[in-house]
């Protein structure tokens, strides 16, 4: 994909982010932060590519280290978000 195509996706996604985040209720701003944390670890894609590639051993180990760090974030982020969201309950009537 050429740069302009990717850049267009990026700019449009910024607008989507702007509108979606403003519609998040303030009561859920902490789960918002923990879930954005988890999804920003999609950077694991780059880490997997680096750790899978042959060639540079240092590059491979950096990739593996990044896989560990990103996995902590992914599993930890989704788990703690789930734990928080499970606590939000409506009034019992």
């Amino acid at each position: 994909m050429d740069f302009i195509a990717i850049f267009s996706i990026f700019i449009l996604a910024c607008f989507v982010g702007y509108f979606v985040v403003w519609s998040v209720t303030p009561a859920l701003h902490t789960p918002l932060m923990s879930v954005t944390n988890a999804i920003s670890s999609v950077i694991i894609v780059g880490a997997l590519i680096a750790s899978a590639a042959a060639g540079s051993p240092l590059s491979k180990w950096l990739g593996l280290a990044a896989v560990v760090m990103a996995s902590i974030n992914i599993f930890g982020g989704f788990a703690v978000t789930g734990r928080m969201l499970a606590m939000y309950k409506k009034k019992e009537r």
């Binding site: 990717i6 910024c14 979606v20 932060m33 954005t36 920003s40 894609v45």
Partner: peptide
């Protein structure tokens, strides 16, 4: 990496923060 998942996520998280 020309990866749309990472770009969309980055933009979402960046605007959210």
């Amino acid at each position: 990496l020309s990866n749309t998942a990472m770009i969309i996520t980055g933009a979402l998280v960046g605007s959210s923060g």
